[in-house]
């Protein structure tokens, strides 16, 4: 497939500068409220600070893709004398933890880089300690065919039930007809 250029939007996290205030969580949840700024609830924030104050761990993590199943990762990393769970760095909305799920419905949350905000993500602007830096860079990626609506639907069914079950079901329905 052909290579195409794509703009990648990222936020660089300098966790050493974090003073642990959670201002990013507040502004994120408030920006994404409907109507905008009508409420605040850090549990709805798409950025969360993993906090272990006495271990000197303050780690901002952004909500990424929805993962239908847990992965195998349970490793531990010791960095600069501090022990982190592998999961600490993971952005996935995953069944193994409550992170990045709407508290009422359990639906997954995902960072959208505050789409529509001309000045970039709010968490970056409201962190006065410069922990977060918004960066855009161009990357060459494989061109991927756009999935059709039905394919998206099927993929989610396959994710949930497995390809075998979905294929069996389609086959059974074909026979009935």
């Amino acid at each position: 497939m052909a290579k195409i250029k794509k703009t990648i939007k990222t936020i660089k996290v300098d966790a050493d500068k974090c003073n642990g205030c959670r201002g990013c969580e507040i502004i994120c949840s408030s920006f994404h409220a409907t109507p905008k700024y009508s409420s605040v609830n850090p549990a709805r924030s798409r950025i969360q600070i993993i906090r272990h104050p006495l271990k000197d761990i303050w780690l901002p993590v952004f909500a990424g893709e929805y993962a239908p199943a847990e992965c195998m990762g349970r490793d531990k990393y010791v960095i600069d004398g501090k022990e982190y769970e592998e999961c600490a760095f993971c952005r996935a909305v995953c069944p193994s933890r409550d992170l990045f799920k709407e508290p009422d419905s359990g639906l997954p949350l995902k960072c959208d880089m505050c789409e529509g905000e001309e000045e970039g993500p709010l968490c970056v602007r409201w962190c006065l300690n410069n922990v977060l830096t918004y960066e855009e860079r161009e990357e060459e990626v494989e061109e991927q065919a756009e999935m059709a609506e039905m394919e998206i639907g099927l993929e989610s069914l396959i994710n949930k039930y497995g390809l075998g079950k979905v294929a069996d079901t389609v086959a059974r329905m074909t026979q009935k007809n």
Partner: peptide, 26 residues
Amino acid sequence: RGTKDVNLARGAEFMEHMKGVMEYIN
């Protein structure tokens, strides 16, 4: 531990004031 909303009466207006406070803090 709480995971509920705190509501603001006039959120957008409130945030405008907070921008001013933020600028003054800086």
